[in-house]
Simulated assay, not measured.
Amino acid sequence: MLIGSKVYYDVNSGNVIVITPEFSGVAVETNKEQDFKLYKALAELIPESVGMIQLEYNSYQFDRFEGGEIARIDLETLEPLFNYPVKEDEEPKPPMISLESQISALKQRQAESDAHNEKLAEENTLNQIALMELHALLLSTFPDEDNAE
């Protein structure tokens, strides 16, 4: 069985309280009530003040590989916001959407651009054909030099 992480967060701020580990193999998935008993950080809180999102097993693997850590949950989209390691010459950045989400959005934009470019190419071809037909029509209105004599 594959069990993804659960992210518990403050429903007012989106700040992460607890992230449960992922499990594979023989494992029993816990529910919210059980997690409130298992994790001290949750046991001290009122359950109504805590939200939870269930992640798929191995989700955000690219972000984890890049050193990203879930810092907050976007309260509008319920998507995790990540902090990434800061290089020596960089300023710290606020938590941002996952790299996987950014890649997915870019792929969608590229697909939309490709479809738009395809439509423009079709229109261009039709315009070229129309110009060739107009050119042929104009040429047919002029007398043929061979027949003019």
Results as ranks from 00 to 15, higher is better:
122 E>T: 14
71 A>T: 00
73 I>H: 00
68 G>N: 04
63 D>Y: 08
26 V>A: 10
18 V>M: 06
49 S>H: 06
57 Y>K: 04
26 V>D: 11
38 L>R: 15
143 P>E: 13
104 S>H: 10
68 G>D: 03
90 E>L: 04
21 P>C: 14
1 M>I: 08
105 A>I: 09
136 A>M: 14
62 F>H: 13
5 S>M: 09
113 S>Q: 14
57 Y>S: 01
84 Y>P: 07
126 L>E: 07
129 I>P: 02
126 L>F: 08
127 N>S: 00
85 P>R: 02
70 I>N: 04
73 I>L: 05
131 L>G: 06
124 N>M: 07
116 H>F: 13
109 R>D: 12
54 Q>Y: 07
73 I>W: 01
69 E>A: 14
58 N>C: 06
138 L>Y: 08
19 I>D: 02
147 N>Y: 14
98 S>N: 04
93 K>V: 09
3 I>C: 03
54 Q>M: 04
88 E>P: 02
15 N>Q: 12
39 Y>T: 06
69 E>H: 11
81 L>Q: 05
41 A>K: 13
54 Q>C: 05
116 H>C: 02
113 S>V: 01
133 E>H: 15
148 A>L: 15
43 A>P: 00
37 K>I: 09
29 E>S: 12
61 Q>L: 11
16 V>Y: 06
15 N>M: 09
69 E>P: 06
73 I>V: 10
14 G>V: 10
95 P>F: 05
138 L>D: 01
122 E>F: 12
54 Q>K: 13
93 K>Y: 00
83 N>H: 05
111 A>H: 15
93 K>T: 07
77 T>Q: 07
3 I>Y: 03
32 K>C: 04
78 L>E: 15
4 G>K: 01
22 E>V: 00
36 F>L: 06
111 A>N: 12
143 P>N: 14
124 N>F: 07
148 A>V: 15
79 E>I: 04
132 M>A: 15
23 F>N: 09
46 I>L: 04
63 D>C: 13
125 T>Y: 15
130 A>R: 12
14 G>F: 07
128 Q>L: 10
86 V>C: 06
28 V>D: 04
45 L>R: 10
94 P>Q: 11
116 H>L: 10
68 G>V: 05
15 N>I: 00
133 E>I: 12
12 N>R: 12
33 E>Q: 07
31 N>C: 13
103 I>E: 13
126 L>G: 00
19 I>M: 15
14 G>P: 04
104 S>G: 06
6 K>G: 06
64 R>W: 01
64 R>L: 04
43 A>T: 02
99 L>S: 09
10 D>G: 08
79 E>M: 08
84 Y>H: 11
108 Q>K: 14
143 P>W: 12
76 E>F: 04
131 L>N: 11
42 L>D: 03
43 A>F: 02
117 N>W: 13
100 E>A: 05
48 E>S: 15
69 E>I: 15
24 S>K: 14
